[in-house]
């Protein structure tokens, strides 16, 4: 499984009739087992890029080549659950073939076991995010997209959820693309970091972290973060 991205441009026309360029030149390849991280300022077009990669937007210049039969799991910025279906029904709707054992293990890991019969309206944002994660993993994806899965959660909760995401991502050989603007998350979860410019977004810098994710210790993570924060992104 492989994802080849070669987007030369993406623009849209606003309601006022003005043309806005969102993406400029985005070229990269993602392989199975690899976690790519899109790192960039808010509003730089990360979500637009994700929508193109997910096949939700086909109105762009360039070419995105996906392996045929690729299963996509997506965690949107907002949980996007069906409020009129219970937690379990929400997951099963996306993944009708999931067996009970896999599902209960997934719920166990994400601490959702007690909530499987609740409606999304009864859940906190943190829990709703976990349901969205469970849904994306339940389909056993070949390509996983995570659009800022840890934002607007307090530090302790975000930390715990990040560990759970790391466990889940490690449990399956798939391509993962994570969007974040937290350098810590990026360094802890990613194998290759793509630093994006402000709109229209292009790739400024690619940082490949050689050490496998599981073996990175706190001193190494600190060192990578220190090096990355010295990058002069504004003048690239």
């Amino acid at each position: 499984m492989q994802l080849e991205v070669n987007i030369t441009g993406k623009s849209f026309v606003s309601a006022a009739g003005k043309r806005h360029d969102v993406l400029n030149n985005i070229t990269f390849t993602l392989n199975a087992g690899e976690v790519g991280v899109l790192f960039g300022p808010s509003g730089c077009g990360k979500s637009t890029l994700l929508r193109i990669l997910a096949g939700l937007d086909s109105n762009y210049q360039g070419l995105v080549t996906r392996s045929p039969g690729m299963r996509l799991g997506m965690v949107f910025q907002e949980p996007r659950l069906l409020p009129w279906r219970t937690v379990e029904e929400n997951v099963r709707l996306a993944a009708p073939d999931v067996d009970a054992g896999t599902l209960s293990a997934l719920f166990e890991l994400l601490e959702l076991s007690a909530h499987s019969n609740h409606f999304p309206g009864e859940l906190s944002l943190g829990l709703a995010r976990r349901v969205a994660l469970a849904r994306a993993f339940a389909i056993e994806p070949d390509f996983l997209i995570l659009d800022e899965p840890l934002t607007s959660l307090d530090n302790a909760l975000a930390g715990r959820l990040r560990d759970q995401v790391a466990t889940l991502v490690a449990s399956r050989k798939m391509m993962t693309l994570l969007v974040t603007h937290d350098l810590d998350d990026a360094v802890r979860l990613g194998d290759r970091l793509f630093f994006l410019s402000p709109r229209p977004a292009r790739i400024l810098h690619v940082e490949t972290i050689a050490a496998p994710r599981a073996t990175r210790g706190e001193p190494e993570i600190g060192e990578i973060k220190r090096q990355l924060s010295q990058l002069d992104l504004a003048n690239m």
Partner: peptide, 18 residues
């Protein structure tokens, strides 16, 4: 929610119902 249904490749009939 339409996008969600498309992203997860939920068949049309099921998406309409749920």
């Amino acid at each position: 929610l339409d996008e969600m249904a498309t992203a997860f490749a939920i068949p049309r009939g099921r998406a309409f119902r749920h």
